[in-house]
Design a protein around this nucleic acid. Structure first.
Lengths: 307, 307
DNA sequence: ATATATATACTCAAGTTGAGCATATAGGTG
DNA sequence: CACCTATATGCTCAACTTGAGTATATATAT
């Protein structure tokens, strides 16, 4: 028998990091003027968690969810429900297609970089890094000495290396800033943050959940064709590149990007072109959806023997 | 307010996929003669889930856990506790160091490949694949026609490709076998499996959880230095290679493996050598633990612009 | 002494990647 | 209209990485 006898009742809450691209800007659906991620109860009439999330999100947003994946389950003691149950929150990442009004501000949708301004390197190193983030981290490093200082320095250098920026470390950087007392997080057992680094906070641990979602998405676009879940059916390679750049928060080399996309066989030409791009007309492409079944991908870095 | 009002009480159960290498064989800790993974209640006096798992596992096994990571949260309706609560199970992957008695059978420890015999390619393609698994899958493909058949064929070809075996797809292969009715899984809404493919079953969904853990571990060894959590403090490169081969289930090219390990700077020589290896004495190495802080790794496959 | 292991060092061709030059074709401007 | 500016697209090339060896060293067993 599995040892479930000592299990205690808790309440389950679902959280969603719902992402869309609106006019080249990566956005997340929020409530309460950007302070909360959408949350919903786990309804027992759904056969699985996944379908529960799907149903509830699609009811709320009236848009189909192209892709859903579980992010993480948090059950930290600082979140207690009013009923006395302990709250366990299970968070999901969901991707949905661009809304109609490109370039407009849709109510509830907020840019990733409102919460993590140091993560947007599309125009080069964000000034906020050198001006606000790094000096404060330096202070935190130097607040201790000897081994502790060396360890802090290594962590800062490894996660905030200007010369070898790693865009996947969104969560680790956020957690480091949290440890350094530079970002506030409601409800956590921490001394209040008097002078936080720039970037909007959220209530509860929602900003941390968002960081988890962005980090996962940035890692995933490198080895699974998930960007296409955010694109319209037909698109130019330029649009596709801007979409990846928006998510990764980094500028890409145009010619090499096309080479990569084309030789991976991810897209096919529709035959049409568009002149709306401001220069030579661009060919329109569509995602070859069959490829998801065919190739289960994976980048083996293991030095396999024989062939 | 987050919409937690409709949340229903459930019971939380923790499951662990606890891995150790025992004499070149990758093993998992089980109960009930291999039929169950260790499970424990979520005790409310632990500040976080992670420390809860750690404490409970270390109490049970009397060994420190080198590495713990959350795997997945399952809450499928077919698992109801006797009390009427719904059970949500949160599973973890844990790595621990090799036991004293190498080569011996430790009670409770079972080889990965007892449960997934088709996943062990260390001696070339497992005979069981051509003899039992693939023919049965072929039957499943041909049981339908037209589009359905084409889709089934694509999925089988993509996940069980003998000529381009992808060792990371452990979970996807297991799920495909489940869908094809070739592996039994207790408690699931499925017709009973009369003639399963070889490989031990487990109770509940524990075999699926184990598949999740192995898949995660196989993916992780490629970009994080987690193997070292399974190794003794000093080891030869030969031992290290056999450890990776055991986890990945594939033979590696010896010279290229050393090159990779050395140029990644993951290890340093201890200065000592050992003659116990049956040939020329091997240098002993140790893991450079500092590197974990220094390099946050990640294999960028994005074609970045400028430098 | 010889056979057989394993360990370690080095080489080389093929493939991949980073960086950039060159050309095509739209719209806007004097 | 000639020309400037954008974006799109095609192609090259050197540097680096990877796959697949050959060659040599040094233990133990017979």
């Amino acid at each position: 028998m599995p040892a479930t006898s000592g299990a205690r009742p808790v309440a389950i809450e679902l959280n969603a990091v719902l992402v869309a691209l609106i006019g080249d800007e990566p956005q997340v659906l929020t409530l309460e003027d950007g302070a909360l991620l959408p949350s919903g109860p786990f309804e027992s009439d759904h056969p699985t968690l996944q379908t529960g999330v799907r149903g509830w999100v699609e009811r709320q947003t009236h848009h189909p969810l192209g892709y859903v994946e579980q992010l993480y389950t948090f059950a930290d003691r600082y979140r207690e429900s009013t009923m006395g149950y302990r709250i366990v929150s299970i968070s999901y990442l969901g991707l949905t297609r661009e809304r109609a009004a490109a370039g407009q501000h849709e109510p509830g949708w907020q840019s990733f970089y409102r919460y993590f301004p140091w993560e947007d390197w599309r125009e080069g190193p964000p000034k906020i890094l050198a001006r606000a983030v790094l000096p404060r981290l330096k202070g935190w490093v130097e607040a201790v000495s000897d081994n502790a200082r060396r360890e802090r320095r290594q962590r800062v250098d490894g996660n905030f290396d200007i010369d070898a920026w790693n865009e996947e470390l969104v969560l680790q950087r956020y957690e480091l800033l949290y440890e350094a007392g530079l970002v506030p997080e409601a409800g956590r057992p921490r001394k209040p943050v008097t002078d936080p680094v720039p970037g909007e906070p959220m209530r509860y641990d929602h900003r941390r959940i968002l960081a988890t979602g962005i980090a996962r998405l940035r890692a995933k676009i490198k080895y699974r064709p998930v960007v296409f879940e955010l694109m319209p059916p037909d698109f130019t390679l330029g649009q596709l590149q801007r979409a990846v750049e928006a998510l990764a928060g980094r500028p890409l080399h145009k010619q090499n990007f096309r080479r990569q996309v084309e030789q991976q066989g991810l897209v096919e030409e529709t035959g049409a072109t568009t002149t709306g791009t401001g220069g030579r007309p661009a060919k329109l492409y569509r995602f070859r959806r069959e490829i998801v079944l065919e190739r289960a991908v994976a980048g083996s870095k293991l030095p396999l023997a024989r062939s």
